[in-house]
Amino acid sequence: MLAVTGLVVGYGGGPPVLDGFDLRVEAGEVVGLIGPNGAGKSTLARAVVGLLRPGRGQIVVAGVDQRRQPRAARALTGWAPQELALYLRATVRENLRLFGGLAGLGGARLRSRLKLVAEAVALTGLLDTQVRRLSGGQQRRAQAATAMMHEPRVLLLDEPTVGADPITREALLAAVRALADRGTAVLYTTHYLPELDGLDATVAVAAAGRVLARGTRAELLADLDATVTLTFHGPAPALTGAIRPPGRPGTLLLRGSDPERRLAGAVRELGTAGSGADLVRLRSVAVRPPTLDDLYRRLGPLGRPVAAHGV
């Protein structure tokens, strides 16, 4: 498992990017790390793999203290950074061989893992293609595959599905889930919340260098408002509790934690007022459940803890 405690990391004497970061990922658990740009998500990964030296705090990888035994900790970790970091003129197979070999694999074990990982991320047919000739999504999968080669005890994936189509995204998520099922602790950074459902992941929300909330997606979004959008032919009528968005005279917004009930009430009110004429002018209804954006807005610029079951 991965245990990060009170981590403080900064760049070149500037204000800390991580400022008391606490996070624990158990063996076999997938934690989706989400948060606005600059929250410190990538910085955390760079600190875990030893590319950044923390000012304070502790990182423990599968029982190994990262500061005391950095090589041992790195050997237990797989990392696919946010930016593409592969040898573009080398083939997928050559990249996998290199990173697998550096992690200590060799001979039959290396060949077997290479075959398995390539299959898992749907790259078998592209093994002998140079990385520069792959699409963006294929490159991201190849990068994730290099991090998974040695079945690390801790896997750090930083937005691995950017540019991936739905089918290949599913393949990658399945590969990550399978690795977790064999005991790997996975820290999965993303801005795309729905894919965390596919990973059966819990969520950690980071902002301003700290973890502000921790729980399942449902728990974290439970008390956030959904939005019902009512669009009318002609100007929108008066409606109790509705918001009129500026510049959209034919639209009303209803916000609340129970959108179906709010919608039913609105329909009742429209049907009774003005002999139902306003209801006849109703053109469309859209219900949008709460999203990650809503959570960010609620947390505010510096964040306000909304821990569902603590950090």
Binding site: R46, V49, G50, L51, R71, A72, R74, A75, T77, W79, P81, E83, L84, A85, L86, Y87, L88, F99, L102, A103, G104, T146
Partner: peptide
């Protein structure tokens, strides 16, 4: 290409 970082992040 940040591959140096990948190498440095290994054992």
């Amino acid at each position: 290409g940040r591959t140096w970082d990948r190498l440095a992040a290994g054992p």
